[in-house]
Design a binder for these strands. Structure first.
Length: 269
DNA sequence: ATCCGAACCTGACGGC
DNA sequence: TGCCGTCAGGTTCGGA
């Protein structure tokens, strides 16, 4: 479900309800996620929430004692609800706060994660992550250095977290469309101009999606329950058989690794 | 060292 | 209606 824009949308939606409040207790109903929910989380109480940050697709809840690291996996979502709201089948974790609100984590496929870390620098999941796509650090020079001997298809490579974080299956296709680059192109075959174009496209697509509250395909909801509105602006993702908005050519799809890719055979070279 | 497929799960949908 | 295969927004792991 969530790529970077959806995680960022969740962060912004949740922050006003929990930052500055006190975490009273956690309820863990189904600890078997991608990894077991960290034991420390079970026993949290009376912890002021100092901030909520994002790194890649991880949400980081800063408490006095340490950090809760949350990943939404493929199907996870977070909502703010009133305490006492009865849980449903896939509501696996709640955090209860001093203002009477709960942060509820729902995740049917349970590919997500709830981990505890006193020192973020020691986190296994955060180590070895590449630069944030919206940061200065991610630029065409970085892309050039990393791509020198990369013969893999550019589409697969964009989803490699060591290159850049937060670009998932939707935005990899969308960014390549905006840059006019064919997804099959070997990473090391791009010209300097194409690399610059691609970096600009990735940043623009992600930023536009964040501005729209993310992409709702089937079930992503913002923390207030509203869908994200970026799906209406998708140019290629999920549009196989439909007409390219730029040239009218039929959008096609294929596979890279085990993931679907969509592109316009006329606009992308 | 690098790559690629399998694996982790549940649910929705289309075809027969 | 029901069963089966396929697909789904992510990431890690093991074997080639």
């Amino acid at each position: 479900m969530p790529e970077l824009p959806e995680v960022e949308t969740s962060r912004r939606g949740i922050a006003p309800y929990i930052v500055g409040e006190t975490l009273l207790y956690a309820t863990v109903r189904h600890p078997k996620l991608r990894w077991p929910v960290s034991e420390e989380i079970y026993y949290l109480s009376d912890e002021p929430v100092l901030s909520i940050e994002r790194r890649a697709k991880y949400l980081l809840v800063e408490l006095n004692a340490g950090w809760i690291i949350i990943h939404l996996g493929m199907s996870g979502s977070l909502r703010i609800l009133d305490e006492g709201t009865p849980p449903e089948k896939h509501d696996h974790v709640d955090l209860a706060f001093s203002n009477g609100k709960i942060l509820r984590y729902t995740d049917p496929r349970r590919f997500g994660a709830w981990l505890w870390e006193t020192d973020l620098a020691k986190s296994r999941v955060l180590a070895h992550l590449g630069p944030e796509p919206l940061s200065e650090e991610f630029n065409s020079e970085w892309l050039r250095e990393k791509s020198l001997k990369k013969a893999t298809a550019i589409k697969s490579w964009l989803m490699d977290n060591k290159l850049v974080v937060g670009v998932g299956n939707i935005y990899a296709s969308e960014s390549l469309f905006q840059a006019g680059i064919h997804p099959d192109r070997p990473a090391n075959s791009l010209s300097q101009q194409e690399r610059e174009c691609l970096v600009i496209a990735i940043k623009a697509v992600l930023q536009r999606s964040i501005d729209q509250g993310g992409t709702t395909l089937r079930d992503f909801l913002q923390s207030d329950g509203k869908p994200g509105y970026f799906a209406q602006q998708l140019n290629v993702y999920g549009r196989a058989g439909e007409q390219c908005r730029q040239c009218g050519t039929t959008i096609v799809s294929g596979k890279h690794g085990q993931r679907s890719t969509f592109w316009c055979p006329h606009c992308q070279h």
